[in-house]
Design a binder for these strands. Sequence first.
DNA 1: AAAAATATCGGTAACGTTTGCGGATACGTT
DNA 2: AACGTATCCGCAAACGTTACCGATATTTTT
Lengths: 389, 389
Amino acid sequence: MIGCPKCSEVGSIMKAGYVRNKQRYVCKDCNYFFTLSDPGQVLPRKKSRRHQTTIIDIAKAIGVSNSTVSRALHGHADISPETRQAVLDMAAQLDYQPNQLAYNLVKSRTNTIGMIVPEFTNSFFPNVIIGAHEVLTEAGYNLTIMQSNESYAVEVSNTKAMLANRIDGLLISLTQETNNYDHLKVFEKRGIPLVLFNRVCDHVEAPKVVVNDFDASFSAVEHLILNGYERIAHLGGPLNLRVSRERLRGYRAAMEKYGKNIEENMIIQGMFSQQKARIYGKYLLDLENRPDAIFAVNDSAAIEIMLMALEKGIKIPDQLGVVGFSDNPESAYIGPGLTTIRQPTAEIGKTTAKWILQLVESEEEVKLPNETVLKTELVVRGSSKRNPS
Amino acid sequence: MIGCPKCSEVGSIMKAGYVRNKQRYVCKDCNYFFTLSDPGQVLPRKKSRRHQTTIIDIAKAIGVSNSTVSRALHGHADISPETRQAVLDMAAQLDYQPNQLAYNLVKSRTNTIGMIVPEFTNSFFPNVIIGAHEVLTEAGYNLTIMQSNESYAVEVSNTKAMLANRIDGLLISLTQETNNYDHLKVFEKRGIPLVLFNRVCDHVEAPKVVVNDFDASFSAVEHLILNGYERIAHLGGPLNLRVSRERLRGYRAAMEKYGKNIEENMIIQGMFSQQKARIYGKYLLDLENRPDAIFAVNDSAAIEIMLMALEKGIKIPDQLGVVGFSDNPESAYIGPGLTTIRQPTAEIGKTTAKWILQLVESEEEVKLPNETVLKTELVVRGSSKRNPS
DNA sequence: AAAAATATCGGTAACGTTTGCGGATACGTT
DNA sequence: AACGTATCCGCAAACGTTACCGATATTTTT
């Protein structure tokens, strides 16, 4: 028979359902519900995870309280040299590694900066990362990188993950699809600093780090014009990105300044991708009255065009001038060399990182949004060097 | 007069020093020490940090317990559809974002894989990252990347940071300086899975993902020999890395198979760096009896040599054959094109990630260390194509 | 209708730190 | 003897979640 664990009564026990597949009883006398611990059952299995030595382990080992250990490990005051040394020794002996998770939880900060980039395939973003990584590491911060893969949906999910992981600040360069910025406004609302770079937008109150796209574009097109090209096409990026708009503006401004006719069918604004570049390039080169120069939004596209021209037997730079953007490593070596705009990639990364550090480490919230414009450089190579005809 | 907070005695209170600038008292009767809370003092200042809405906020808002909210948010059973919906609605209304930190702390896992790479400047590691990133993201894991900058000290500090952040697993490619592996053995000791790739070592019990360096090297040198080159130099990497040793072995094997004399002064094993490559290249090209071909450890070095040869008026491939390793983007375009070994970079990343996922998600600890060897491909371009003389 | 099973929910220890506040001693000073 | 100062250390409450276990309320079965 079963007895009540409380009143020890035996006669008044009744079944009372199941809970988690275990028979449950109730004592009608004292109205006490209980289940019987199954003696045949294995003990609650020990955590399979190996036990990591904690502050408490150290405390027990040398007979002090955990607060003392904590203070000793962090060089606080209020502790005697002897105890401190004892703690340090024991920590080494037990191979103690602090649990950053617990630390982060209680401090509500992670010492981690998040970074979301649209792609990794061009050399641009890796180089930006190098720069940012350098100054963040220097300042004692970690860098967590995510890749949105040029997809708005992925970008949104990335920002959520960043939020959940409680990063201290976010560096982000938008995808070519991004038209809605609510996922960024969440950061404002929560007071988590944000810095945009390269692919920025105007609808978010945050510092932005960009290059002088307008000037760069202008000088590129001007360079083409001064080399005697007349009918210059522009293969641009998606217009929701400010870089694309600025580069288009620069293109138009230069054309207008020199009185060149802008043929609208020779301006293409499209997505960034190798495949699209090929399609657009083919379109331009197959025009019955094809352009004598092309200013492309990036080097990948420019190189596609150069390769295509090579196939078609179009001579570069004599019959076709080409200028790219970003100075990829391969651009220096392809054919006669690709004229392009060199961006200060590492500098962009460093500047972005410095901004976020200022924001993260400032007590006040009064930092005004600002915009840093870095300088690019026109690198003239063979693909556009022709004597003015 | 002051009364004792304990025995309410009034006559027996005496001053007993200060503690933190506050007058301290002792009751001679009950021997109770106390200080008086200063009523004029400001209340403990509110946390300046903005309050993030938590599970408890939701629970209070709709009058249930936090455990109910937790269950509702995670799609657990034991919850009615109505409550669940109410929780979900309130969560949306309060703009609740789960605190991954707390989650990680209680679960003792972070859903994050760490990755340490020696450098970012070549395209190799970024491409590996792309591959790893893809499968990890797919599996719901985050990827935290750190860069050791080819420095052993930085690598050690990186591993400590990874440990502190309680990553679930580590992917690592060693620096050229790394000779001691104690920092990796810590991971074994703690049962944290580890996968090495590319720059692996033999002294750690962990899966390794590499390419068939020996075969690749062999075929590269063989290719040179079949193109009529006789006196082939090898510009290799540091010998503590297995890749360097394997490539050297492949070089020797090919030379021996075809009965070529190996001139030991034409084998250089050195550090990876642009500067070193220039120095070693200059040495080789300045030899009074200079080699007629050079097999370099990577494309950067090979390209340095090609540029230097160009300066010196040495014709490629007629007077000098060059083969690199890794197929950087620029290699296809430089001069006559650089013959090189293409590595399946994305594949390396994916394989590495799959391994770590298996290890992380397996309950058992019995996964034997293994080694995955991926295949490379010899890409023949102009820098080595000469008819056998 | 009593007894048993089911469906929902709450209470409360963990997880590993940090930190404010106060206790306890030792020693020096009126 | 009474008081002041300084040093060192412990208590316990956070931080936000999860999960085990027990407790009701409701439905189903006998």
